[in-house]
Nucleic acid binder design. Structure first.
Length: 242
DNA sequence: AACAATTGCAACCGCCATGTT
DNA sequence: AAACATGGCGGTTGCAATTGT
């Protein structure tokens, strides 16, 4: 019954990887793949005195081709912040929206920089869901099934720009106008419908209020309206981070 | 220049879901 | 069906680098 333990934790090397170890692991995986079994990989790769889990982590977070390190763009910042507000600290899911970024990188980036940058802006964080459960389906009808008071953006793909979010009241009301891009009408927290959501069917015809502006900016970026989203974001940033 | 404090991030730890025996 | 291994994930730690005094 069962299998042998994955490795002898007392004898395997820990800590930072040397260039030689990196080379050995990279060359082996590029030549043979990981074979679906990380535990036996160190043995198969030769004298790699590392735990299989450590090999997996090193490959996925550092050695794997096409991984981007550092220099997150403003767009990436917003996508991360928005997804964090929507789904909480499900870093692997967030990473799946940012090609080339790893969950570990995003987690570190959030914890060291973005958390401060967006402090006060991300006010309602979704509770952690049970792992490996499918995410709540927000695509069917309106209002979507909101668990707790977490902001929700409709997942892509989507045909019509529509933004759903609760409007936190603790920041009070203020109007955000994006010059030359949108009109001047605004959404106030009074506009909430009974479900706690506000619907914006045609965001290009509105300016936004409070966190709605933040949600709008992130959503617009997701709708590939980069220029507009970036403009909204700049205004939000100027307001919050001055 | 020396030391302390802070920051950034790679890597480890432990938990949980799933797969295997 | 039960017991265990494995893969995957998020939280946390430890240390090197950087910044401040």
């Amino acid at each position: 019954m069962g299998r042998a333990p994955c490795c002898d934790k007392a004898s395997v090397k820990k800590g930072h990887w040397s260039p030689e170890e990196d080379k050995q692991l990279k060359e082996y995986i590029e030549k043979h793949g990981h074979g679906g079994n990380w535990i036996t990989l160190p043995r198969r790769a030769g004298r790699l005195n590392r735990c299989g889990k450590s090999c997996r982590l090193r490959w996925l977070n550092y050695l794997k081709p096409n991984i981007k390190h550092g220099c997150f763009s403003g767009d990436e910042d917003w996508i991360i912040a928005n997804l964090y507000a929507s789904i909480g600290s499900r870093w692997s899911v967030i990473a799946s929206h940012l090609p080339g970024r790893t969950d570990n990188d995003i987690k570190n980036y959030w914890n060291t920089k973005l958390k401060k940058k967006f402090s006060g802006l991300i006010v309602a964080q979704a509770p952690r869901r049970a792992r490996r459960k499918p995410a709540a389906n927000c695509t069917g009808g309106f209002p979507p099934s909101l668990d707790e008071a977490s902001p929700v953006l409709l997942p892509l793909p989507i045909t019509e720009p529509q933004i759903l979010f609760p409007l936190p009241s603790q920041y009070g009301n203020f109007d955000l106008t994006v010059p030359d891009l949108v009109g001047t009408s605004s959404i106030n927290t009074d506009d909430q419908n009974p479900s706690g959501c506000t619907t914006v069917d045609h965001p290009e015809s509105y300016s936004y209020t409070g966190d709605a502006a933040a949600a709008a900016a992130a959503a617009l970026l997701q709708f590939n309206m980069e220029e507009y989203g970036a403009a909204v974001w700049s205004s939000v940033e100027a307001m919050y981070l001055q």
